[in-house]
Design a protein around this nucleic acid. Structure first.
Lengths: 197, 197
DNA sequence: CCGTCTTCTTAACCTACATCAATGCGCAGC
DNA sequence: GCTGCGCATTGATGTAGGTTAAGAAGACGG
């Protein structure tokens, strides 16, 4: 059970000794999953926050017409969870699935408690993570309200150039709120514009 | 300087004595604003969380084409702030404006610190508020990605029937991500359907 | 190296919603 | 009781993006 990335992530953000964090981390299970495997399905109760050590996860929902809507991508060093389900004890409306063979640390409530007890700065750090999450969500809402498909795509390219190369366009489209066909057209149009310059 | 609603809100959610909360609340300024007055403008630095005692506030952005996009409405007993600006010390991309003559408690960083110090349960409570915020934002993203104008309007009617009656339709439309004209047509269509039944 | 599968592209057509412009209508101020 | 203003409605027309369907291009297992 080793989780070097989570470890260094915590060390660089918290005022904590290496062996102390190691001992806490021992209590966390690490899950290895193959591409396409699920870490969470709709209607299940989400009990963990996943920290991605290796690979790439995706969180998405499926609407009544059967269409997928990507909520987030989580590559190495990212967290992903359904806070609504985990925190408020509800069954989840989302799926979390591996887009590549992946390795994720399964963080549970207990882990948070231990950290809060032993490391005072963890509370502030956790607070910061939550605020950061809120910032991203709000930015995305603002974008969905105000930008065209092309603008949203350009924004995505700029923010997540690495992810762009690792996931199928279908999924990028479902993140942007458009169809794969539309995304293809947007890309074509952009290529044309750049060529003309 | 009295803020009875914030007081009872805190008392009912925290394990705290009435006079203790009263003394902490004394340090908070209360702001009375007329309809249309601003509590925050774009490019300003947001230094407070506003708790609405009386009235109704709205948070919105203006895009490059000059269009308004409503981020949130805040009636009595609600908080509103730009966490991105307040927490990360950036200049704000949003406006906060009174839609009615209003009274808001101006909560600053210091207030949070005092509460965290004196009331241990405040940390958990604050955590809960953040999680709740995240839950709402995520739900809204999911809706913007997956629902039609009509579905979004129906959802709004169900979730915020009170707000619906207090704000002009233009602003509801800008919350839903559609034009006022479209909202008018959606409403007409819904009226027609209900009449036929 | 072939067949199958998945993803991407392209084209023709369609629809939800936007835009533009005119009209209506309630209500505040004089 | 007028007048003007802000907001809602309506109609005509435009357009971004959706839908459907087909083929092209990689990716992969045998």
């Amino acid at each position: 059970m080793n989780s070097p990335k989570l470890k260094s992530f915590l060390i660089s953000n918290l005022d904590i000794e290496e062996d102390e964090i190691s001992s806490i981390l021992k209590s966390c299970q690490v899950k290895n999953v193959k591409k396409d495997a699920f870490l969470l399905r709709e209607n299940e109760h989400c009990k963990h926050t996943f920290f991605v050590e290796i690979g790439l996860l995706r969180q998405y929902s499926i609407d009544d017409k059967g269409k997928e809507h990507t909520i987030s991508f989580a590559p190495e060093n990212w967290f992903v969870t359904d806070r609504e389900s985990a925190y408020f004890n509800q069954s989840s409306a989302y799926y979390i699935q591996a887009l590549e063979d992946s390795k994720a640390v399964m963080i549970d409530e207990n882990f948070f408690l231990k950290l809060s007890e032993k490391i005072p700065s963890f509370i502030d750090f956790n607070n910061k993570l939550l605020h950061n999450h809120i910032r991203h969500l709000q930015k995305r809402i603002n974008m969905l309200l105000s930008s065209s498909a092309e603008e949203r795509y350009l924004e995505f390219v700029e923010m997540y150039p690495d992810i762009l190369l690792r996931v199928p366009q279908t999924m990028v489209a479902s993140y942007l709120g458009i169809t794969p066909e539309s995304l293809s057209r947007v890309r074509k149009e952009l290529a044309r514009k750049n060529f003309k310059k």
